[in-house]
Design a protein around this nucleic acid. Structure first.
Lengths: 123, 123, 123, 123
DNA sequence: GTGGTCTAGACCACT
DNA sequence: GTGGTCTAGACCACG
């Protein structure tokens, strides 16, 4: 399982982990009942604290994406790819909305915002 | 001077202040050597902590938009509206790019990202 | 605010905290918009790690009982005492069910279980 | 010997084993000097780790219910069924008391606690 | 081996 | 001052 951590981002490490695991699940690279790497294993692999990985796993479980069995490990729960996609889209929507509102607060015209957006998307 | 604070946003208050003052400067509503309201005045007006206003003013000064004279007040520095607009656009560009990249990391298609964007912009 | 920690119990400290705060909220001893003690303050008062208090507060927020404002503090959210009572009853139900099932596994008759229960309740 | 494991319960597997063996002893289905199945045999039969069975047997021995002879096996010790029943009742009593106290701490009335209890027992 | 809890302290962002 | 994140390491319970 490939997780990439970018410590320069202002995104918490545990969130980067949950985001990427959610995507792995949605893409079918992690399937129901698959065993996630143990907290310790992943923490060593990523060279981060075990607690940080645990927090990521805790969040995944509380959102229903995984099931943790004490003494055994963490497993991918039954999933609904559709539902997951919708959730991720909502996150994206929130991010985009925040950026747009900020641009407007700065007095940038919607037309300019759209131009920038298209520039980046096509770029 | 009209500043609007929205505490429900996930944008820090001090950033909302600097953004709006930058825009006032760019629009010419605040001109070179204009006197910004004092930290205490603005903090009372906005019903927020004076430290928050001070942080906003500090940032404005460190970015060269204002000049603070000890014991007198804070004044608008000589500015180049064109340059300022460009800078604000760059910030927006960074925000949009980050959102787009996150969406792509989640496996959302460019077409879907664009749809969401248009939905929000038109909405 | 009075929180009592019992480290001899096998109940996690953070759960003892969340349980007691929920009850304070339900009993009206903590009302909407009341400010909970800061993470550090409570941790010093209870002589436990700040992280443990934070975990308790995090859980309270994720269950909707409190609202946390960065840099300001943690506040009691609008509550529904009815709903909260129902939830606590469900917890009690789970505990009782577990005890009963264990008794049955040990071959103790329902009549004996009921006798014991009444003895304790009346006692 | 029939042991039933329920992994969905929140009761540790080793405790389910010890509980049931204690009951078998109390009911006379296991008598003094009877040979318990070997750790490996039982672990295969129940499809669980041998370490888990060993932990159950260790607990039984430390509580005086069995005697383990190195290289030979585990045998039922001399027992007093009456005494055993009393002990199991005491455990149940402790569990029920803890549940009741928790309910009371949450401000649930004794009447409500009793209703819940009866509901589960009859259920 | 696994996860669950807790500690003591660090650094950062926000008010 | 506040909360937010992360670390390095400890001890416990479960398998």
């Amino acid at each position: 399982m490939k997780i990439i951590i970018n410590t320069t981002l202002m995104v918490p490490i545990y969130e980067q982990i949950t985001d990427q695991i959610k995507t792995l699940i949605r893409n079918g690279e992690l399937k129901e009942n698959d065993n996630l790497p143990s907290v310790r294993t992943l923490s060593k692999e990523l060279k981060i604290s075990a607690l940080t990985v645990k927090k990521a796993y805790d969040n995944l479980e509380s959102e229903g994406f995984t099931i943790t069995v004490h003494g055994k490990g963490t497993y991918v729960a039954a999933t609904n790819a559709e539902l997951l996609l919708e959730e991720q889209k909502k996150e994206l929507e929130a991010d985009l909305e925040q950026a747009i509102q900020k641009g407007r607060r700065c007095g940038i015209s919607d037309e300019d915002i759209r131009s920038l957006f298209e520039l980046i998307l096509e770029g």
